[in-house]
Amino acid sequence: MEIYLPIAEISVNWIMIVGMGAAVGFLSGVFGVGGGFLLTPLLVFYGIPPGVAVATQACHITASSVSGALTHWRRNGIDFVMGGVLAVGGLVGSILGVQLFRILQQTGQVEFTVTAGYVLLLSSIGGLMLNESVRAIRARRRGDPPQLTRHVQHSWILRLPLKMRFRHSKLYISVIPPLALGTLVGILTAILGVGGGFVLVPAMIYILRMPTGAVVGTSQFQILFVTAVTTILHAITNHTVDLVLAWLLVMGAAFGVQFGVRVGSKLRGEELRALLGILVVAVALRLLFGLVATPDDIYSVVVGVP
């Protein structure tokens, strides 16, 4: 049951790793998010070196976003122009992120930055999600009519220059917000080993005001590019992509997702978002505990040269 990971240089129980991939794949099937934010901490907790976990995650998310993007493409759910602009930003962010990751590694701040970054990101997004979904559930119970999404642009976005037409999304907006958004997500991918769908999707809906039908497909399309480039950059800069580990995770996830999608389709949207919100906040609290609690040993030893 044990298999040796040639890059991580440890032997792991492969059933355990496939199981983790399946569990996280199940959740991503239910909630429609990548699940990288769960898998990276899980892998580190299992004993995979953080550098290997983050880089291999990028590789694993490439696989799941290929599946996702293909599915949405068949349903005509991808705005390729918007995806392209986001991807350009993402590539810049990924290059910046991999460099930043190396600097953090040299100064010994990777672990803290990654954990603190997760805590901030997950608690704010989980909080927003919970808040919004609880309101929606209450409104439904009271019998309020569903709120109409206003397709009105924020005035500050309308004032920005370099406007461009996104035919598929029926938008005419500046390229600066999607470029900046793409860059931010690229940095997150490189440093935290997440696809960034859980940042990208809400931002596309609430900031860019894209029609919801094209949001998930377009984000998958952008994530596909960014994670592919991040994988290559990590392979070149840090030599930390473990193909055996990636393969095990992908195998597990491919099956998990299918079951997840079936369960997810039976749940209501608001309940789904409330559950995901609880999950995300729980992960954030667990990670925060790790930062606050007194460690068993305040010293840690890692292989390498700073």
């Binding site: 490439t62 799941s64 293909l70 290559i232 990636a246």
Partner: peptide, 12 residues
């Protein structure tokens, strides 16, 4: 690595 991921994703 990317090619393998792409192929596995497509297979899925």
């Amino acid at each position: 690595a990317v090619f393998m991921s792409g192929a596995l994703g497509w297979l899925g």
